[in-house]
Every structure is written in C-alpha cells, then in structure tokens.
C-alpha cells in the first residue's frame, strides 16, 4: 500500500507556492534565496514522484540530481551577489536597493 501520487504532488505544490510567497515577502536577501531553494525542491519532489509512478522512470531521478547540483551552484553565486550587495549597501534589506527604477 502506497500513498497515491497526487498526495505527493500536492505537497510539492505547497512547497512551490511557499517558495514563491517567500520570495515575494522577504525583505532579507538571504530569505529570498531560501525561497528559491524551496521552489527548486518542489520541482525535485515532482520529478521523484513521477519517476516512481509514471513511465518517466529513472530519468526523473537523474533530473533531480542535476537540479540539486545546479541549485547549489546558483546558491553559491546568489550568495556571493547578496554579500556584494551587503558590502555596498551595508544592509541585506532588498528594499534599500531601489536606486534603479522608472
């Protein structure tokens, strides 16, 4: 007896939306990056679910492996940029960065 795929997909949807909400509400740059991780993780959960239940098969797991690697790379650069932002603005509050607009 196994939980049905739609349950997993629902969890993934929750993760995804939480990630998006996190990106839209957080003023802390690092917090936004955490939202990104959530979104990517949601996609990963999808892949694994599909790999288990649909003909996607092993491809799904390979996908998620690559996503993990790429997410790590992206996180590294994003963090470096966030730190750079911090160095220039002396805060990590992204709302302070509104010099560019209009």
């Amino acid at each position: 007896m196994q939980p049905t795929p739609d349950k997993f997909l629902f969890i993934s949807a929750v993760l995804f939306v939480c990630g998006v909400v996190c990106m839209t509400t957080k003023r802390n740059g690092i917090g936004i990056l955490m939202g990104v991780e959530l979104v990517l993780n949601a996609a990963n959960l999808n892949f694994i679910t599909f790999s288990r239940f649909t003909p996607l098969g092993l491809d799904g797991q390979v996908f998620s492996l690559f996503v993990i690697v790429l997410a790590a790379a992206e996180a590294a650069v994003a963090l470096a940029i966030a730190l750079n932002f911090y160095n220039n603005h002396l805060t990590i509050d992204v709302d302070r960065g509104d010099e560019l607009h209009g």
Binding site: L33, V36, N84
Partner: peptide, 16 residues
C-alpha cells in the same frame, strides 16, 4: 550590485 541582486533573484524565481 543592486542590478546583480535583482537579476539573480528574478532569474532564480523564473528558473524555479
């Protein structure tokens, strides 16, 4: 740095 942060956040969101 502001541009880079905007780009990375927006890009990461879109990529997600």
């Amino acid at each position: 740095s502001e541009a880079a942060l905007k780009y990375v956040v927006y890009g990461a969101g879109a990529a997600g």
